[in-house]
Amino acid sequence: MPTLVLLRHGQSQWNLDNRFTGWVDVDITEAGRQEALKAGELMKAEGLRFDFAHTSVLKRAIRTLNTALEVMDQLWVPVEKTWRLNERHYGALQGLDKAETTAKHGEAQVKIWRRSYDVPPPAMDLKDPGHPANDLRYAKLDVKALPGTESLATTLDRVLPYWHDAIAPQLKAQQTVLVTAHGNSLRALYKYLTDVTEAQILEINIPTGIPLLFDLDDALKVKSFRYLGDPDAAKRAAEAVANQAKAGKH
């Protein structure tokens, strides 16, 4: 049957620093590397044999993917890197401390920016050096396609064409596919796959470094899904993500 695994990158330096990261190309920490190693061990123990893997063009996802595949002795698996799997663009919030932003703007407003379905944060100016239009890795893309901010809804709009064009055909061919990406690009896919409501997705948090396995039918409808390993550990990790803006830590 078609099998899909979603894996959020291991802890990044800005996860640790509790900053809005978005499209900033921040690397993983040593703790993040350990999470990636553990993810590989969990997938190996599950007996997964991947036919193809997809990731973003951000090093925290790429390094997590490579680390996990190395543990599985599957570095040979073909990998496609795409900007469409990048993290949600956090606009002018990128680089800011989450707890400090909460203290300044209030918990309710920051929760709207972080977790609302269709309300984006304030946009980043096109002339900002951090805008993707000024990044070489996106130089061949139409500048109009590059976001200065995104909501989860517009992140889903960005991710879905890649799902339909690249990932879904592989799954329909009965392949086993690994997608290693980011909290919000994966939340967007989660919403699409599970058909949860806009209200329900606000409370869904994807923990770092814990593989989420989907068993699909031939029409790619979800038959079942679960985190690999200890379910209580996955629940605690997801709760930690939800509490970032409050706690000032990850």
Score class of each variant (00 low, 15 high):
P161Q: 07
T197K: 09
A168L: 03
V196P: 01
G183D: 09
W163Q: 07
A237M: 07
G229D: 04
G183T: 09
A237D: 05
Y190G: 00
A199D: 15
I204M: 00
L193K: 02
R226F: 06
K221W: 05
A233T: 12
L171Q: 04
Q200C: 00
N205S: 13
L202P: 00
P231Q: 09
D230M: 13
L189E: 03
V177C: 05
V196T: 08
E203T: 14
S185Q: 11
S224A: 15
A166F: 09
D217S: 12
D217I: 12
I167C: 01
T176M: 01
A188I: 09
I201K: 01
D218L: 10
D218T: 11
I167W: 01
R226G: 07
A233C: 05
Y192C: 00
L212R: 12
P207M: 11
A166G: 02
R187K: 14
P169M: 03
W163L: 07
L220D: 11
V222W: 04
L178M: 07
R226P: 04
L178F: 05
D215C: 08
N205Y: 14
A234C: 10
E198H: 13
L160A: 03
N205P: 05
L202I: 12
P207R: 10
E198T: 13
I167L: 01
Y192P: 02
H182Q: 05
G183S: 12
T194G: 03
I204G: 00
Y192H: 15
I206A: 05
H164T: 15
G229A: 03
P207E: 12
D217L: 08
L171F: 11
Y162C: 00
Y190M: 03
R236D: 11
K221A: 13
F214D: 01
L202C: 12
A181I: 07
V196N: 08
L216D: 01
A166I: 11
H164Q: 15
H182Y: 06
I201S: 00
L189A: 02
F225P: 00
L220C: 12
D215N: 15
D230W: 13
D195M: 13
D232Q: 13
A173I: 06
L228K: 03
Q174F: 14
T194S: 08
L220Q: 10
T194M: 12
A173R: 13
T197W: 08
T208I: 08
D217H: 07
Y162W: 10
L228Q: 06
K223W: 02
V177Y: 01
K235L: 14
Y162L: 06
